[in-house]
């Protein structure tokens, strides 16, 4: 999806943020709502599962937003550049 879906011209505040961010918020909201004694769903700890998924998705969103900020405007796909060079004095 990151390959074929067009990027927005607006950095950071674009569809990446509200698509992945809303899902992340919903996962953490589910974690909060499934507080004990309601955490067991189908004999599994759904609260722990939603929390883990939300954390992983938040970490992915963080990396996507960093890549989106440093991708040149107008480029169709994200560029994950882990070797940014900063030269100072």
């Amino acid at each position: 999806m990151l390959q074929y879906h067009a990027r927005s011209e607006v950095p950071v505040f674009n569809w990446y943020l509200y698509a992945y961010g809303l899902v992340t918020l919903c996962l953490f909201a589910g974690t909060w709502l499934l507080a004990p004694p309601r955490q067991m769903v189908l004999n599994s700890n759904a609260r722990r599962c939603w929390g883990t998924l939300g954390t992983v998705l938040a970490f992915l969103l963080l990396n996507i937003e960093i890549a989106d900020y440093f991708t040149p405007p107008g480029q169709a796909a994200l560029t994950f550049e882990f070797s940014g060079i900063l030269r100072g004095t």
Binding site: F82, S83, G84, I85, L86, R87, G88, T89
Partner: peptide, 11 residues
């Protein structure tokens, strides 16, 4: 292992 090789002294 990665970042320090690409950074200037101040960074």
């Amino acid at each position: 292992t990665h970042d320090l090789a690409n950074l200037g002294q101040l960074y």
